[in-house]
Nucleic acid binder design. Structure first.
Lengths: 148, 148
DNA sequence: CTCATATCGGACAATATCTATCTGATTTGA
DNA sequence: TCAAATCAGATAGATATTGTCCGATATGAG
């Protein structure tokens, strides 16, 4: 009943990138200041490219860039990009797993609760989180680089 | 971001026991009709005893029994009895894990979302779920025993 | 008193998932 | 042509989940 560390990394990464939404960031530029293992972050960024949150460019001046405004990226979108569609119980995804099938008493309850959770996650945007972050010298060092 | 199978077992178990709230159930009486591994269920029942949802009695006519009405047992209580206090993110529990400490932008967001989720889970009772369960011959076979 | 029944508690094994790394391939611009 | 980067897949290591087993203890029945 909790998000994975991967998802936590993913959110921190986007908050960081949102500081300079137009810049093309390399894996290392994001991983180092945020303390995320670079090769692990690379995997996460791939998922963002596949889900359309980021675009990527290979080669010398390549890297990753937000495809839309941080204000248009919700926590729900981020979580689903990384973990797949949210489902509180296995039987939400595959009905077969629900051993009591159609008469599973909890099924509709999970569905409702999940709906409330998803709605709430959809209210929070990366922009909101980024705006909230305090500025400190150490933090500034991380984002004070040249860019577009 | 999903409940464990253990929690799923736990809820099904309580729904089953709620059919006959005064009866003293043995592990086997609950495990067999619900298809839960008996020795695994035994562990779950221990947690319920520790959290006060069930009382237990050893020996020949021993077993487990609800300590209060199914209408007074919420999903939140059940989940917390099994999984411990709910926390969507590790940094909810141990602040040290939150690598950016006090300036973690997501911290307050998680706190709010978690609050909404907990509130929703607190709305659902075992009674509500048990009432919703359909009666079928196969199911009746499971609960049609002597007792309380 | 003895015995079968049941919970209690801990250790343990098997499995699955999560986290992280590495390697080779491909693309790109200087 | 070369260095810088992403891309894709394999794989190892760590951790969590799921499930089993066993000895200890308590209890009521005979």
């Amino acid at each position: 009943m909790r998000i994975s560390r991967e998802t936590d990394y993913a959110i921190r990464c986007l908050i960081f990138m949102a500081r300079r939404p137009l810049k093309v960031h390399t894996v290392m530029e994001v991983a180092r200041p945020r303390g995320i293992p670079p090769s692990f972050l690379a995997k996460i960024l791939q998922k963002f490219v596949k889900s359309g949150i980021l675009s990527s460019a290979r080669g010398v001046r390549g890297g990753f860039r937000l495809t839309r405004s941080p204000a248009d990226i919700t926590l729900l979108q981020v979580i689903e990009a990384v973990e797949g569609p949210i489902s509180l119980n296995d039987c939400m995804v595959e009905r077969e797993t629900c051993s009591l099938a159609s008469r599973c008493a909890a099924h509709s309850a999970w569905k409702e609760i999940q709906g409330v959770l998803a709605a709430k996650l959809g209210e929070y945007t990366i922009r909101m989180l980024a705006d909230q972050e305090e500025y400190t010298p150490a933090f500034e060092a991380g984002i004070a680089e040249e860019g577009p």
